Simulated scan of single mutants.
Amino acid sequence: MLPIDFCIPDAEAHVMSDGKVYLYGSLDCAADRWCSDSYRVVSGSNLKEWKVSKPCFSVKDVPWAGKTDMRRQLHLDEVKSIDDLPENIRMFLPKAARLVPIKLLVNQIAKQLNADAQQNLALFAPDCICKNGRYYLYFCMPDNTEGVAVADQPEGPFVNAAQLPVTGIDPAVFVDDDGTAYYYWGQFNSHGARLTPDMMHIEEGSIVDNLLTEQEHHFHEGSSMRKRNGIYYYVFADISRGKPTCLGYATSKSPLGPFTYQGIIVDNSNLNPESWNNHGSIEEINGQWYVFFHVSTTGKYKRKACMLPIEFDENGLIREVKFTEN
């Protein structure tokens, strides 16, 4: 069991080459906000006893932390109307914002975003993968920047952080059977691309936008990719029930789509109606597949990792896990 006060949400579960299961997630430490300024890795060999690593990566290891110009990062100088604003900004604007001249509004937004980025130095949901004997941690921050750091051990420490040329949150990484690595990210709509062989860069010209959308796939955020019997399973925070409390999934015969929405795997609102979101993964462990997800313990916040076994039907579709608090 994990310590009662240890809250790791957004868990990406991976069985590494040593046979142990490793959980990579963000770290909730406060009762009034999500995430914190560091990561810890959880590992175990029997799904009952878990070990928590020392802090393995923090915002202090990110060279650009607190220095991002949000006007430039979000291309705000190209905004000509409110409809051009990023959706995650537009959806929170009051109705009165439409009465403000767009240049003045953009200046106000940029000023506030820059102030928030400098004050809210946190690490959001990560993912990690092993390739060629090294471990690559992909991370994101509230300023919409994403990056990668490297370690020689699955629990870190992760060093030499490099920024990736994408904008968004919730990165996911997947290495296919042929050794090709893929990268996924996004909120409201998702993006995918191939990584270069060194795992540190996006392959030029490989980005595919709108892999999943809110309208067609109920995609909110929280990308995660797995493969089973030739089918690619794109797991994500599903908003089809009003809030992104579900983990839903879509499938494809290709790692870069097109993807077909298939339904919901698990809904954490059954455990806590105050839960706002969900984020997790599926992983095969000793021949059994599990879903990893989180549930809020203090209102919306302090989210704890959970896991449940899942089943596939004869067509490779995942049956929704039905459960109660007991």
Score class of each variant (00 low, 15 high):
L2S: 02
D5G: 03
F6M: 06
C7N: 08
P9H: 01
D10R: 00
H14S: 02
M16D: 12
Y24F: 15
L27T: 08
C29L: 15
A30K: 13
S43M: 13
S43N: 06
P55C: 11
P55R: 12
V59K: 05
T68D: 04
T68I: 13
D69G: 10
M70W: 00
R71A: 06
R72P: 00
D77F: 04
V79I: 14
D83C: 01
L85A: 09
L93Q: 12
A97C: 14
K103F: 13
V106A: 08
A110N: 00
L113M: 15
N114S: 14
A115P: 01
D116W: 09
P126D: 09
D127H: 01
K131I: 01
G133I: 10
G133D: 08
Y138D: 01
C140K: 00
M141L: 10
D143F: 03
D152H: 15
D152S: 14
G168R: 05
G168Q: 02
D170S: 10
D170Q: 11
V175I: 15
D178C: 11
Y183K: 05
G186R: 02
Q187T: 12
F188W: 09
A193F: 02
I202M: 07
N210C: 15
T213A: 05
Q215L: 11
S224K: 00
R228S: 05
N229S: 11
Y233F: 10
Y233R: 05
F236E: 01
D238N: 14
S240F: 07
K243W: 05
C246D: 07
S252H: 12
S252C: 12
F259W: 06
T260F: 07
Y261F: 12
G263N: 10
I264S: 05
S269L: 04
N277I: 13
S281V: 05
G287A: 07
G287F: 06
V295E: 00
G299N: 15
K304T: 07
M307R: 05
E311Q: 08
E320T: 04
T324V: 13
